[in-house]
Nucleic acid binder design. Structure first.
Lengths: 372, 372
DNA sequence: TTGTACGCGTTATCAG
DNA sequence: CTGATAACGCGTACAA
């Protein structure tokens, strides 16, 4: 009943089996050239002593590693990230790697801390969703040491736009809508700034702009003319991209369309913001830029006892269950996770191409909510 | 542009700063008694060389560890587990620990493999959801070495009942319903077998039976008399418990109630099974024993254009969004994760009480779907 | 306060 | 095919 009997070592096994340390090491590492008699004695000693290979100790030898990859995301509780983490873990585990997942909670300081901790732990590779205000320092510091992959958002090689976008930040009491003009202007600069340099590290992105554009076109096609972009802060890369796609669709031939922007972080906030707008007649359709916004929109519709045409970005569990079922722009999350894992594994296997950006297509899933 | 320049070591730092290895070690470990001049030289050398503390190497010293905890769950993609993992990670990270999460996919072999791998990695503690057919061997092997906590299901100290329960396993083509009798019988034995011995390891459970009983009583209160238990395989501990609670409610004074059991693993299967039963008049209410069954039930109702009173086990995203909103038995997942993390941390801090089982209460959230 | 020498558990070299 | 010996990067007596 000793609380913590210290685990037996190779030395113990060697002594018990009456062989040299190195022979045990060979046996443990699956070497074939061992006298069967000795191998048997060693195997017996191992099970009798309850010996377990110490990977942590083995990993300090040069050229050896613990076969662990780090994954830094913003929130494990969000289905988007947990699906991604699952996919990454699955691909890595097929290749003998373990995954360490940590959440930054969208906090840049905590993000740095976690990356540091993972590096100190000597992980073999890093898959990272860069924080909101990315200082790029983490990537520059880590990239030379080990394979690094940015996922969902690029590791900025230039700082983000100083004033993210002067959008009308709606607040529940006095939700403001802004005319199209300033948004279009800021969009132009966002477009110009898109990927000015080659990526710092391998990067896996979804086609946020393209997906948003397709969704917006679909709303326009059904007669929408005053569309609300309901999303999270435009400080977020994905939001900026989706907003850019949104505006790109509005600039198209089917002119005369107006737009406004409302910002909300949680589903409840989104519901409040939208509820306040519903009676005013200032909007006639909603593009929900993430799943929380979609859920908020449904709540607002339910509360108001009315609804507007709606398309959301990111599929979510409820989307097909509510009436009308919610049309969405879906990312192939599993594929993104697998791509990220494979990118790390490829470099671990020795490949050293120039860092590349992979943009995965999105798909528009129409379920009915896009119609008036 | 060297692919992998080997990271600088303490020795390099010591040489660059012109001090002894030990002094650098002290500096890195935050010792206070260092000549400020030397400390400054060391700090400079560290930043110039880009030195990072190697925790893996440090952890092989006796008494030291990498401060990593392993978490073995069945499926990260299930919101239940990702919420739990998030909660565990949060609590651990507040205490300086990192979390390694792996999915067993409900496969007992893979489960063993993963536990072995985590043990080889020399994690400091283990939080495990035991696999379906638990052979208890993993816990017996691991528990003497490090703090182990079983979560969601107990680590069986006796093998599971040989024939899990002779329930009427419904299949889509010819869904079978079984009279109450055999279930009641098998329930009696399940009741008798519940926790025959003290737990092998610290165990964190939800009150599955109590929650299911409360939900079933609520359905009975609204006039239900032929209730369907729609759930996953009764090989699963949680399913057995929920089924036991379900039957316990049916045995109560409000007699005359009948029941049947249908098994489905996915939401789609659950929908099919239920859809086939809906027209027959053999059931007048549904207890969905997990969130996938709940979602399947909603789908079946929608397809059939009708509905029955419904209560589900485990809250889920859509529950409040669909009409009527789905009443559920909710577990406090965050609390369970925190409790598991704290149990590990307590033992790591030196506490050595006898292994205990903590059963956390569930809450019945009534949203309307329980009514006819 | 600083440095020396050694050990942690494992693997690699290289001679038997 | 096997084994003594020297690393690996770091922490700790112990001595200076």
């Amino acid at each position: 009943m000793n609380p913590m009997p210290k685990p037996p070592t190779m030395k113990d096994v060697a002594a018990a089996a009456g062989v040299a340390l190195k022979t045990v090491s060979r046996h443990v590492n699956g070497a074939t050239n061992i006298d069967p008699a000795l191998a048997a004695r060693i195997a017996t000693a191992i099970t009798e002593l309850g010996y377990r290979h110490n990977l942590a100790a083995a990993s300090i030898r040069p050229g050896r590693s613990a076969k662990v990859i780090g994954l830094v995301i913003s929130d494990l509780a969000n289905p988007y990230w947990s699906l991604l983490a699952r996919s990454v873990e699955r691909t890595l585990s097929e290749n003998g790697y373990l995954l360490m997942t940590v959440s930054s909670e969208e906090d840049a300081d905590r993000h740095r801390l976690l990356v540091d901790r993972l590096l100190a732990q000597r992980v073999d590779g890093l898959i990272v969703s860069p924080p909101r205000r990315d200082t790029t320092a983490w990537a520059a510091a880590a990239a030379p040491l080990l394979p690094v992959v940015a996922i969902d958002r690029p590791a900025l090689s230039t700082p983000p736009p100083p004033a993210p976008v002067q959008d009308a930040r709606a607040d529940p009491e006095a939700p403001a809508t802004s005319p199209t003009e300033p948004d279009l202007a800021s969009n132009a600069s966002a477009e110009a700034k898109r990927r000015p340099h080659p990526p710092l590290v391998d990067t896996i992105l979804a086609d946020n702009a393209g997906g948003a554009e397709a969704a917006t076109r679909e709303l326009l096609r059904h007669g929408a003319r005053r569309i609300l972009f309901l999303g999270d802060s435009l400080e977020l890369y994905t939001m900026r991209e989706r907003h850019a796609g949104f505006l790109r669709a509005l600039k198209s031939p089917a002119a005369g369309a107006d737009s406004s922007v409302a910002t909300a972080h949680t589903a409840a906030e989104a519901a409040d913001v939208l509820a306040a707008l519903l009676g005013t007649g200032r909007i006639d359709a909603v593009f929900a830029a993430n799943n929380r916004a979609s859920i908020g929109a449904i709540e607002a519709f339910t509360r108001a006892g009315t609804r507007l045409p709606l398309i959301g970005f990111d599929d979510f569990e409820s989307a097909a269950l509510v009436r009308p079922a919610v049309s969405v722009v879906a990312q192939d999350v599993a594929l993104m996770g697998e791509a990220a894992a494979r990118a790390v594994l490829a470099r671990l296997a020795g490949a050293t191409p120039a860092p590349a950006t992979t943009t995965l297509p999105t798909s528009l899933i129409l379920r009915g909510s896009e119609r008036p």
